[in-house]
């Protein structure tokens, strides 16, 4: 019952701008949404804390500009945090704040512990390299120097995400959006990461392809028991995937709980609005 979380995030803050006398104090700051009118500083993430447990899918919902993607970028080290702590509970990383680690250690975490699927495949894939090459890139980064092994692993992964093998040497730029997204998922899974980030993975895909990708993610989660953080503004996606859900508004967590609970019986005014505006 008292499981230890695999990822702990404490007081994550991310601001764009230096801040001024009026907005530096967390308790008394007056912001228009997340924006300080007197100095133009934007508080994208304010005091975000949560735990991610092994094998769990954590959903994060919120409107555009609520800080979902910024939070993901901070966790994946794509951008630096302003302040805050995060801990990964694996034997060699336990007890150390990952935000304060050296660039090499961060790269180690990205290569061995994390997998990331971006909303836009252009960010996660090298569009002018073959699909096999894209997957191999992550394997090479993790120290693999055997072409035969890497090719075999890549083939298996691409098969798992239903990419026809006769197209595996093609560049992802020739693929449809849904296929690109699936190559990205295969790449993210190549090193069996314990933690997988999914940033709006189905946004922009048509409904049947969306169902396909979601099915795939669900299957992966069931078979491999990977912990996932799923960011989406689509409540249907969250309902289908997430065990627990966090609602973000203006960079703050306003509600969290079991997905069913949050969606069936929303407490916060904004969540109520969000749930009932579902068509």
């Amino acid at each position: 019952m008292y499981e230890e979380p695999i990822l702990q995030v404490r007081n994550l803050q991310k601001q764009f701008g230096t801040g001024c006398i009026e907005c530096r104090q967390k308790e008394t700051r007056k912001l228009v949404k997340n924006f300080c009118k007197s100095c133009g500083t934007l508080y994208a993430c304010q005091d975000i804390s949560f735990d991610l447990y092994p094998g769990e899918v954590l959903g994060i919902v919120g409107e555009s500009g609520s800080g979902k993607s910024t939070m993901m970028q901070c966790l994946y080290f794509d951008s630096d945090v302003s302040s805050g702590e995060a801990y990964i509970h694996t034997p060699d990383l336990a007890g150390k704040n990952i935000f304060e680690m050296s660039a090499q250690q961060k790269r180690f975490i990205r290569n061995y512990v994390y997998g990331m699927v971006y909303q836009n495949p252009v960010q996660g894939l090298k569009m002018n390299f073959s699909s096999v090459g894209n997957i191999a890139e992550k394997l090479i980064a993790a120290g693999n120097k055997h072409v035969g092994q890497m090719e075999a692993t890549s083939k298996k992964l691409l098969e798992n995400v239903h990419i026809p093998l006769h197209r595996m040497k093609e560049e992802p730029r020739n693929f449809s959006g849904g296929m690109q997204q699936r190559v990205q998922i295969a790449k993210a899974l190549s090193n069996n990461p314990p933690i997988l980030f999914l940033d709006e993975v189905t946004t922009g895909l048509d409904l049947s392809v969306q169902a396909n990708v979601l099915d795939l993610i669900k299957g992966i989660q069931r078979d491999l028991g990977i912990s996932m953080i799923v960011v989406s503004h689509d409540l249907a996606v969250i309902r289908m995937l997430a065990d627990r859900t966090i609602v973000l508004l203006n960079g703050k967590i306003i509600e969290e709980g079991l997905t069913d609970q949050v969606l069936e019986d929303p407490q916060h005014e904004y969540t109520q609005q969000l749930v009932y505006s579902l068509l």
């Binding site: 660039a103 090499q104 073959s130 096999v132 090459g133 890139e137 980064a141 072409v147 040497k169």
Partner: peptide
């Protein structure tokens, strides 16, 4: 950071092609 996966990737791509 001694991150040379890109250089290796180019060779890998050539082997694939």
């Amino acid at each position: 950071e001694n991150d040379y996966s890109g250089a290796w990737l180019m060779l890998f791509e050539q082997i694939m092609k």
